[in-house]
Structure formats: C-alpha cells, structure tokens
Nucleic acid binder design. Structure first.
Lengths: 195, 195
DNA sequence: TCTTGCGTTTACCGATCGGTCAACTAGACT
DNA sequence: AGTCTAGTTGACCGATCGGTAAACGCAAGA
C-alpha cells in the first residue's frame, strides 16, 4: 500500500500498473492478489488509509489548533504546502489533492472508486464546516453565516488551488493562491447575491 | 478530432485508446497515423481546436457582453453550465474543465501535453484579467485592484468548481458553487492580508 | 496511356495490461 | 511425525496498448 500510494499520487490511476507497484514493493504479483481482489480495491484501501492519516495529521491539528480562524487557515495551508513539497522532493512529482484527482480521473469509469473519493471529499468538507462553526461561535464570523455553504466554497477553492499546483508542478503555487482562501472565508458575506 | 474530443473530454487521456477513437470516427487505425504522428499529437491538436472554439464562443461573448462585471460573470457561468450540461446529455459524462483535467492527468507524464494545457490555462487567465481591467476602468472595482492576482484566483476557483462538478457528475454543482465566484471577485479586497 | 503520389487498408509488431492458477514453502498445531 | 494452512512463487492467460509497414486504390497530370 505504501508503494501504491507513492505511485498513484504522483502519477495517475490509469498510468500506474500492478507490475510497477509490485516491483516497488518487492513483492510478486501473485502475492498481491492474495490480499486484494484487484487493482481497484487496492487503490481504494490505500486512499482510505491516506485519508485517515490526512485527517489525523493535517485536518485536525490545523483546524483545531491555536488562534482564530485566520491562523487556522494559515496553519492548514502551511501543512498542505509542506506535504506537497515533501512529496515532490521524495517522488519527484507534486501530487495535488489525491482525492480530487482520483475522483476526476475515475469519476467516469469506476463508480466504486469515485464513490470512495466522494466520501473523503465530503468528510473534508465536514471538517471545514466544523472549523467555520467554531469561528461563528467565537464571534469571528457573522452569526448568520451559512457555514455549510461556505465550507462547500472552501473545498472547491482548495481543490482548484491544488489542481493549479499540480498542473504547474510547483508547491509555491499553493502559497501564491492561498490569499484567495483568506479573501473567500474572511471577508463579510452579504445575505445572498441578488441585490 | 471530433471523435477524440468526445472521448477524451468525458473519459481521460489514459483510458481512451486509438482503437476507440478510430472506431467512433469510422476510420482505420493506419489512416490516422497518416495525419498524426501519434496519440499525443492528436490530443494536443484536438484541444488546441477546442480552446479556439471556447475562446470564440464562450470567453469572448460572455466576458465582453453587456452589463457590468457581475452580469458578465453570470453570463460566463451560464455558458459554462450550458456547455457542461450539453456534453453530459450527448456523451453521458460531464467533462469538467478539459484543460485542467488533462494538465492534472498528464502533468506528470507527458511534458508536451502539459505545456500545451498550461498555455491554454494561461490564455484563459489573460481573458479573465482583461475583463477585470475593464471593470476597473469602469469604476466597478477599486482602482488599486491587482487584476493579475485576482484573475489568478478566479481561474483557480473556476477550476475547483469544475473539478467538483466532474467529481459529482452534476452540472448543477456549477450553479451551486457559482456564488463563491461572485463573492471572490465582487467583494472589496483590502490591500493585502497582513493586519 | 502511363506515371506519380496521396490516402487507405490490413495484417502484424513487441510490450504491457489486469488477472489466474497450480505447485510449492514454511510455520503452527495436534 | 504428520497435518493443515496462510502465504509465496513463477508461469501463463487473453486482451489491449500505441505504433509500423507493405500492398493497394485511385484520381490528377504528363
């Protein structure tokens, strides 16, 4: 699963073969199929584990850390940036958001994989919302803020930032675009858009 | 190239084979290689043509249409939504942003393809910036607005919105997230983020 | 009529894909 | 000692991948 992670994150689902995964893991192909029914299940399990780590090591610490919402966003962006830069140093490729990338690539081919990625994206969104709810409770955001909706926007922008970073293969893209996140989340939002 | 477009947009680069393209186009495989050196070139040429149409039929009309910046953004989002919905009806799959998806998928494998997609993304960003500059000239945005930076944010959010729409395979996701775009572009931005 | 050359057709190339299977190994338990 | 079983191995499967090449059709020009 570690080999799978390293390859799938930095390449893509379709371009990573069982052969490559097994070679990197030092395992014969037959052995793999003793534990996993197939490639799809292997990748789903791998990203399930990845999400667990991501939530425990990035989402929770950053979004429940010290300071107000602004500081937590900054910590969150910093943690993402560090992870992306670390992966790029280790694998030579910047992965972007694994869940988003996989959802996009397999969304039109593998329903199970897409559903799994959707679930992880939903979980991330829920974490965002919790952070926003906390900010509302502390008076940092207007009490009328629709936190579900704002969390939705947060996730979309975050995915966009990571997509651009992967397209440019440059971790600093994340830092360049991070102010958009602050703008989106910290500026006061009127009650709707229509005048 | 029409067959290539229909397949590549809704599936992915890796999962679309020359055989499938030729079958759909009613052409024998050998004939294809008389006109294109290989799959990569075929796809690059196809997306080059697609960008041309996109600029002429979506970007220019929407972003230079009647009304102020708000109306133009609305027109832009509406045109994108219509295109996505049309593709979904025709192909059964919602494509998302072809340039973004391809840049993400091939970004770590095919330098030429990635460079081509980057070029198209840069061109889109330039169109965004032109629209923002016009808004500044008309006094709709603060004269101190950093339009290059704001266009950068616009593109990132747009890519995120289209990524989510593709992940969810639902064109209405675009409409759901569009208000984030209005918030990002139309709320006043202080001169930087640091207090 | 004969040549020229664009474009098509078809068979074929080696490589790789995900996945299968029967034989085998080795450690735990009786 | 004998049995059982989780796990390993390497050969093998058919399908498909992107790409090649020789033969062929055919219309225009000389």
């Amino acid at each position: 699963m570690n080999a799978t992670r390293g390859l799938v994150l930095t390449r893509s689902y379709g371009s990573v073969g069982i052969a490559g995964i097994c070679e990197r893991a030092g395992v014969r192909r037959g052995s793999l199929y003793h534990f996993f029914p197939g490639k799809e299940d292997l990748v789903i399990a791998t990203l399930e584990a990845l999400y667990g780590e991501f939530e425990a090591e990035v989402l929770q610490p950053a979004l429940r850390g010290p300071g107000g919402l602004r500081e937590r966003i900054t910590a969150f962006v910093g943690a993402i940036h560090a992870f992306q830069a670390r992966m790029q140093a280790a694998e030579g490729r910047l992965p972007g958001c694994p869940f988003g990338s996989l959802a996009v690539e397999t969304g039109t081919q593998s329903p199970r994989l897409r559903a799994a990625m959707q679930g992880h994206l939903d979980a991330i969104r829920a974490q965002f919302r919790a952070a926003l709810d906390t900010a509302v409770a502390h008076g940092e955001l207007d009490a009328r803020t629709d936190t579900a909706r704002l969390a939705d926007h947060w996730l979309a922008l975050m995915e966009g930032i990571l997509l651009m970073a992967r397209a440019e293969q440059d971790a600093d893209t994340i830092l360049r675009l991070a102010p958009a996140l602050q703008d989106l989340l910290l500026t006061t939002h009127p009650d709707g858009d229509a005048p």
